[in-house]
Amino acid sequence: MNLDELYQEVILDHYKRPRGAGLREPYEGESHQVNPTCGDEITLRVHVEGDKVADVSYDNVGCSISKASASVMYELVNGATVDDALAKLAEFTELMNSKGQSEGDEESLEDAVAFAGVSKYPMRVKCALLGWKAFQDALIRAEASSGRTNA
């Protein structure tokens, strides 16, 4: 097994210096997700302004893959339009389900292509998707409560 492929510099960097970490207000949707097999957890909030993801904030415990993935996701979706963010979600999910057959499009996924290697490790794919799952869920909740803010 090639560990370098899994633990790429980019991933370790995001793990050690997570971007956008911490829970912030205001937000309209909040999601709590757990990975029942390993106990990893994330609480994630989404603040939507108009058609834009105005802030994504989160607090998580977990392995390097799940923490780095949340950090990379923050960079990708924060400030993007909701539609673009959902497109990234779909693209990243597809990459994770590629079983090592895809390299990912660096143009659109940026640092997240570093996770291509993770897709070969079925036990770790869930780690990489945990934050994204929380984002998707928080977004749904934000839309459900649209107009109202919890701040």
Binding site: L3, L6, T37, G39, D40, S64, S66, K67
Partner: peptide, 22 residues
């Protein structure tokens, strides 16, 4: 402070099978 998942993954690369998690 290294998450057990990461510990387990690196041990696996050395051929060592341990369990990680709760």
């Amino acid at each position: 402070g290294v998450h057990p998942h990461d510990v387990g993954q690196i041990l696996d690369a050395e051929g060592i099978a341990v369990r990680v998690g709760h």
